[in-house]
Design a protein around this nucleic acid. Sequence first.
DNA 1: ATGGGTGCAAAGTGTTTGCAAGTAT
DNA 2: ATACTTGCAAACACTTTGCACCCAT
Lengths: 132, 132
Amino acid sequence: MKQQRSTRQRQLVLDAVRSRCDHPTADEIYIDVRASDSRISRGTVYRNLALLSDAGEILHVKVPGADRYDLRRGPHYHLLCTSCGAVSDLPMPYDPELDEQVSRATGCAISRHRTIFEGICPSCAEKQEAGE
Amino acid sequence: MKQQRSTRQRQLVLDAVRSRCDHPTADEIYIDVRASDSRISRGTVYRNLALLSDAGEILHVKVPGADRYDLRRGPHYHLLCTSCGAVSDLPMPYDPELDEQVSRATGCAISRHRTIFEGICPSCAEKQEAGE
DNA sequence: ATGGGTGCAAAGTGTTTGCAAGTAT
DNA sequence: ATACTTGCAAACACTTTGCACCCAT
């Protein structure tokens, strides 16, 4: 991995991710960062998000549609509301035993697994009942 | 859900998915279908893949990069080789109990979960050792 | 000074969609 | 006859990249 320099832009991106409790998309981070410095470009935000997640400073959550980023560092499970698109953390421990099981069963060197639960969050369920 | 008609194009798409043991991307299906009928358009393939997976005839596997489709119908877990991009099925039973756990913990109506294991498959591991 | 970093805009990649014509029911 | 489907191309959403200049080390 390349040597990382410390730049104002990189710091702004990192701060933007850390200042949010939800799971912002790259573009949401871009919007936030633009509020502090309107000259930062999308490319820079994308590049820095990639660098920071490679370095383990933030977590890259691969959700269909648009990838998201998370201030929590370790792997954990996520919940996606298929109605409103909100993503939230789940209070379940990551199970490394599964990775070992799969390693043994397949002969592959497993580095991790990603689990996303799909459902309808309570507020969306309400809206749907009201609407129909 | 809309009423489904039976068309030659739809059948070709379904056959193409069923004739493969791997997990083709929409574009791979498109290539296959074009071999039988060179006038089918990408749009039609995408539309039919969506319709068929909505109808439960095939499974939509949401892998980062490009979505894939699977002739197996029920939900199950997948393995993604982060080096060559190959996707394969895992011989592990789907655990519906997890969905209930999350439902209880969050109050959301969980419909399913998707798990993707990431690792390096044996043949890629070999190549990497040889290359370095 | 040197090599990574930045801004910009253009190009990619994967997917969806508006429309007029076609076709299964 | 009706309304779902198709082919085509344009549009989309998200992300990456080439390039010339900039700046942290």
